[in-house]
Design a protein around this nucleic acid. Structure first.
Length: 1174
RNA sequence: GCUCGAGUGGCGGAACUGGUAGACGCGCUGGAUUCAAAAUCCAGUUCCUUUGGAGUGUGGGUUCGAUUCCCACCUCGAGUACCA
């Protein structure tokens, strides 16, 4: 008030006592609410409940800025509104008080993170209180409070003791799984589990050691320990979840992220993928948020197909001819046909030997009647390069031929050939077989041979399977080293090494480059039985699907590019589609051709058919694939919830008994990782669990080791801590019964409150907190702990309030003389020209270096040097200036900088020269600061996220001080729709502030501004009643629709009208105070008190809207001609269409518009509009 | 690239299921009050070639009538990123 140096006397003269003194009033009511605990919610009040929740804040050191309260104000308005509507409202608040910044601060200062956190919370609390929120602080929770995280740990134990039964589609107790294993093994168990579990019978299970059993169970538990490839951030010494990484760097701090394998706790969220997806249909959440969750879960329907890897023949030279086709390529088709015939009609001896060899269950596999080179041999074991020929009488006349053949096969192709005649086989089979075995044993396994492999692929387009001309594996695929042929080995290894070196970021940035290499191996097409070459390429991701694809170049652009690049054939399997330029991926327009039994079918029909066929031959099935990965739950940090886990003698994780919870964070000397690279908890002196019977405690390593092993339980405790989202995934339920130390919440509390009715928070939590919370809620639902499978019925995203940064530009050379600027300006133009010509014709013309441009460049650099500009700036930034964030508090609403304040801000700015914009000297104001004309210096503005480092933070404290919390609340609502992002701009706050003053004066119309409200007779103020009820209706609708900005303007209209009507009537002004109270609670309380009420306004019943005050007898009809409104006419509302038309046509303005023409048509919508078509 | 959202005065933004485009506020202009300022109040404020006409990113369509519905395009923002 004294900002402009006006003495107090003046204020007294105008009678400040009667004016709206918001500072005093707001402080008074905030104190009142706190003392009376006005907003304390009752568990089970008998009234209908309503639960309004805000996303609880992380108390950072920076405190609140004006962007933070937006959502809180909105939810507070709603909560207050619901109280007026007679609901028992739960509107709690707490803090997500575990967090990385507190830990980093602790690392720097050595102070315990809890102390920093506590200090920050104090600031937050003061700031939140100042804004007049109606939180029930008696229910405050903090995630870092052991009383709270006891239950976070408890839920972790519940998850550990559960598995997901896909048959019942819910989580079940691990005991049920163990009894099933003991009774029937795991073959019939349909569970969400690790992919590498092998099958076992009940007998197997019962014979497993306890450790083996535990290892298997770990693969089924909903939280499990596994070697996971994680996002490791060396700079932070911890791992991060996928949603904490943006563009390959950490979300906070932008540190580089590398992939690393670590043993980590994981949450089996994938078990819930489908239910998380389905649940979205049952909740009223914003569509964009649902979309991003849907996207994140990434369901795709298709088929999994198994391709058999063809065994390799012994080496016979390079090239990419199929290596199992051991026949000469041009003879092969003929030989194959022939071989097929011969397989159908074997001789008796051949058949007998074949059966015998099959019965033998040899390690290796024989093929019969197989084309080799230019012959068909009777039996061949490709792995060992052994050919067995059985000669019948018909061959006898060809003895020479046979000898020739053996020679060729042995000498040229390196096979071993043994021969038997028919009689030997038929009469002395045993000897023949044992002879074969001996030879087999004497032969080494062929190089490159790795066994009978299958490659499973996932595809959304199984209909295009006949177009698959190759397969591509991710370089990291486990089969790659096993199937690669010796010739390709070097190349493949080089490629794998090269891809591993490329960071995730490079790989993402460089999507265009096609790279890959051939493994030398082939797979067999499941239908055509043709060989399909197997390649590796980094466009196939190891982390998605099976890490392998069947490549259909005609139907997928990436496969197409790959095939084009490596000259792999691109067969066309689409009817009437030209694929000479690009792949064709439009499912809807697909008609399959050249595909055997799929010809002529549409996409849908073909998919159905091909899946049926795949199932018939046992090489595939329909499959749904999800992009969602299990969530890594370990963090290598100090400031998080400890796991209630110790490792027993066998190294198996064991849960602490519930009665020992909470397991509190240990004291450590420092918050950094240990020298051996263990997480910070490794620094704890006492971090071993020691338990005898029912007594357990945390002890030092020595104490544990010296304790008697007799009856002892325990071992080293887990060193990782839980991630940030652990504590926030159930806090909404804990609010229902926050001080219960017997259970996470009482049955009574959860049955009464059920779920959150309205949750307001930012959309940035879409794929993190909001997905994990839904997962935990579903788990809790399965366990019968909560009555609702979704925790929040309705969710609203508030937009972000962005800051408006102010920039000034500083001359690089502080010592530069004033006339240096003109020289620089000229040089800048030259420099720009240089880069322009460079971009046009490059400095290499036709591969020859262009010396002219280079000469220009060195000249410019030379000239720059003369005015003191360093050469390196030529390439980098604009050489004349660099932008500096100016603190927005130095800048007024017209972008004018307070030059003195700015120059005094930092000592180095004292004598610096600043110019406007990017070095451009475009008006008289751009003179160096403090020079000559003393004109205004305008900063340039840019919208950025509000951040301390950008000096664009506007503190709510300052606004409250100047205009009051009610003004701030109303103004933030008035800025625009809640969900929209908007830049903070103080310009309009005077509007709502003067509205509040007007509102005050409406109740203080006495001669000296005294309170003046009269008890007029009922319905004595028809105009006022009309205004009031119009307002009631609009405000009620607006709140229900979260359209808070429009209700603020409704209030303004209402107060303007009532002021004009000189309304003093209690009948009108009392309900108005209640209407305003959710938005501006302080002033409303004060007025309520002055109106003679002893109680808080908070529970006064919301005024009832009555239609009767708004009933009109006439309507101001808009009269339009061809849809354009030209004038209005007041007509009674009870006229018929015909009467309206007659009245309108009789009007002289109508005739004037028509200018004698007869209208073609007159459209009359009674109560709405009249449209004359001419 | 894909998915979603949005384009309305100098600015923030109104306009319910198609029915008077620009509510309300800021800013600006003029006026009243004042020695003066602050504060307050009153009037005006989409644009133009102003007895009229045009106008909600651009072009087309449906309709008596389109900011609203449909098609194509442009621009901006958010999310996602080789997802097979």
């Amino acid at each position: 008030m004294l900002a402009h140096g006006i003495p107090d006397v003046v204020i007294c003269f105008y009678g400040s006592k009667m004016n709206y003194n918001f500072n005093e009033i707001e402080a008074k009511w905030q104190k009142y609410w706190a003392e009376h605990q006005t907003f304390k919610a009752e568990n089970n009040s008998g009234k209908e409940k309503f639960y309004v929740l805000d996303m609880f804040p992380y108390p950072s050191g920076a405190g609140l800025h004006v962007g933070h309260p937006l959502g809180y104000i909105a939810s507070d308005i709603y909560a207050r509104y619901k109280r007026h509507k007679g609901f028992n409202v739960l509107h709690p608040q707490g803090y997500d008080s575990f967090g990385l910044p507190a830990e980093q601060y602790a690392i720097q200062t050595g102070q315990h993170p809890a102390i920093t956190t506590e200090e920050n919370i104090k600031t937050y609390r003061r700031q939140l209180d100042q804004l007049g929120f109606s939180f029930d602080w008696s229910r405050e929770v903090r995630t870092s409070d052991p009383k709270y995280y006891k239950w976070t740990q408890w839920i972790f134990i519940q998850l550990f003791n559960s598995w997901y039964n896909k048959d019942t589609d819910k989580a079940e107790d691990i005991e049920t799984l163990m009894s099933r294993f003991a009774a029937e093994g795991n073959t019939k168990v349909n569970a969400a589990c690790d992919e590498d579990v092998s099958q076992f019978s009940a007998d197997d299970w019962n014979s497993f050691s306890s450790k083996e059993q535990q290892e298997i169970l770990l693969k089924y538990r909903l939280t499990y320990l596994a070697d996971t490839e994680v996002n490791w951030v060396p700079a932070l010494g911890t791992v991060l979840a996928n949603d904490e990484i943006v563009n390959g760097v950490s979300e906070r701090g932008g540190h580089p992220v590398v992939r690393k394998k670590m043993t980590q706790w994981s949450m089996r969220i994938t078990a819930y993928a489908q239910r998380l997806l389905d649940g979205l249909n049952t909740i009223d959440w914003p569509q964009p948020l649902k979309d991003s969750q849907t996207n994140w879960i990434g369901r795709s329907e298709g088929a999994s197909v198994n391709f058999k890897v063809l065994p390799l023949a012994p080496s016979e030279g390079g090239g990419i001819t199929p290596r199992y086709i051991t026949a000469d390529s041009d003879l092969y088709p003929v030989l194959l046909e022939r071989a097929k015939e011969m397989r159908k009609n074997p001789t008796a001896a051949e058949d007998k030997l074949w059966q015998a060899l099959r019965r033998k269950n040899l390690d290796v596999r024989f093929r019969r009647q197989h084309p080799i080179y230019r012959f068909i041999v009777d039996f061949v074991c490709l792995e060992k390069g052994l050919i067995i020929e059985v000669d019948g009488k018909i061959h006898e006349y060809q003895l020479d031929n046979d000898a020739q053949r053996t020679l060729e096969l042995e000498q040229k192709k390196g096979y071993t050939v043994i021969r038997f005649d028919n009689d030997e086989v038929l009469n002395d089979l045993e000897r023949v077989v044992s002879e074969i075995e001996d030879v087999l044993n004497s032969l080494p396994l062929g190089e490159g041979w790795g066994g009978d492999f299958e490659i499973e692929v996932f595809t959304t387009r199984p209909d295009t399977i006949f177009g698959a001309s190759f397969m591509t594996l991710a370089p990291e695929h486990e089969l790659v080293p096993k199937i690669t042929t010796p010739e390709q080995k070097a190349e493949v290894e080089a490629y794998i090494e090269a891809t591993a070196k490329r960071s995730e970021r490079d790989r993402m940035a460089d999507v265009k480059t096609v790279s890959g290499t051939f493994t030398g191996a082939y797979a067999e097409h499941p239908f055509t039985k043709e060989p399909v070459p197997i390649w590796i390429g980094d466009y196939v991701l190891a982390g998605y699907g099976t890490g392998a694809v069947m490549s259909v170049p005609c139907g997928d652009q990436r496969d197409y590019d790959f095939a084009k690049h490596f000259g792999i054939p691109i067969p066309n399997i689409f009817e009437g589609i030209d694929i000479s330029e690009e792949a064709f991926a439009d499912k809807e327009k697909t008609i399959i051709a050249n595909s055997d039994f799929l010809n002529g079918l549409s996409y849908k029909e073909a998919v159905k058919k091909v899946i049926a066929e795949l199932e018939k031959i046992g090489q595939g099935k329909g499959k749904v694939n999800y992009r969602l990965r299990d969530a890594v739950f370990s963090r290598q940090r100090y400031w998080g919830e400890p796991f209630p886990v110790y490792y027993d003698e066998e190294g198996m994780p064991q849960m602490l008994d519930e009665k020992f919870l909470p397991l509190e964070l240990p004291e450590v000397d420092k918050y950094l990782p240990t020298e051996t690279g263990d997480p910070p908890l490794g620094n704890a002196k006492k971090w071993h669990w020691l338990q005898y019977g029912g007594d357990g405690k945390v002890v030092s390593k020595e104490e544990f080791e010296n304790s008697s092993p007799e009856g002892r339980l325990g071992g080293p405790l887990e060193l990782n801590t839980m991630p940030g989202w652990a504590g926030s995934s159930q806090y909404f339920n804990r609010y229902m019964d926050p001080h219960n130390d017997k259970e996470i919440f009482s049955r009574e509390a959860i049955d009464y409150w059920q779920d959150v009715d309205l949750y307001i928070g930012g959309s940035e939590h879409a794929t993190g907190h909001l997905l994990y919370s839904r997962f935990w809620q579903k788990f809790m639902f399965d366990k019968g702990l909560v009555p609702k499978a979704e925790f929040a019925k309705k969710l609203i995203n508030q937009g972000m309030i962005t800051g408006t940064s102010a920039f000034v530009y500083r001359m690089q050379q502080d010592t530069m003389l004033k006339d240096g600027i003109d020289v620089l300006k000229a040089l800048d133009i030259k420099r720009k020209e240089y880069f322009l010509s460079k971009s046009l014709n490059d400095d290499y013309i036709g591969g020859v270096y262009n010396p002219i441009l280079e000469k220009v460049k060195s000249q410019i650099i030379e000239d720059y040097k003369k005015v003191g500009v360093e050469a390196q700036w030529f390439e980098e930034v604009h050489p004349t200036s660099n932008p500096i964030h100016a603190d927005v508090s130095f800048v007024n609403a017209s972008d004018e900088l307070d030059i003195e304040a700015f120059k005094n801000w930092r000592p180095e700015y004292k004598d610096a020269i600043f110019i406007l914009e990017n070095g451009e000297l475009y008006d008289s104001n751009s003179l160096p600061l403090g020079e000559g004309r003393g004109g205004v210096f305008r900063v340039s503005r840019e919208i950025e996220k509000m951040s301390k480092s950008k000096y664009n933070v506007v503190n709510p404290d300052d606004i409250c001080e100047e205009y009051g919390a009610d003004s701030l609340r109303m103004y933030e609502m008035f800025l625009g729709p809640l969900e929209q992002s908007k830049p903070w701009n103080t310009a309009g706050i005077t509007g709502v502030h003067s509205f509040l003053k007007k509102l005050w004066r409406l109740y203080h119309s006495g001669p000296n501004g005294e309170f003046h409200v009269t008890d007029s007779p009922p319905s004595g103020e028809p105009e006022g009643a009309k205004t009031l009820h119009k307002t009631i209706k609009k405000v009620e609708d607006d709140i229900e629709n979260f359209s808070f900005n429009t209700s603020v303007s409704t209030f303004m209209i209402c107060v303007n009208e009532l002021t004009a009507q000189k309304c003093h009537s209690r009948e009108i002004l009392e309900p108005l105070a209640i209407l305003v109270s959710p938005y501006a609670p302080h002033i409303a309380e004060e007025l309520w008190g002055k109106l003679g009420h002893g109680e808080s306004i908070a529970f006064a019943p919301f005024p009832k809207f009555e239609e009767k005050y708004l009933v009109e007898s006439t309507k101001e009809y808009p009269i339009s001609f061809n849809g354009k409104m030209r004038f209005t006419m007041e007509l009674p509302l009870d006229l018929s269409k015909e009467e309206i038309e007659a009245a309108v046509m009789a009007n002289e303005k109508t005739q004037q518009q028509l200018q004698g023409r007869t209208p073609k048509k007159v459209i009359v919508v009674p109560g709405k509009i009249v449209n004359i078509v001419g």
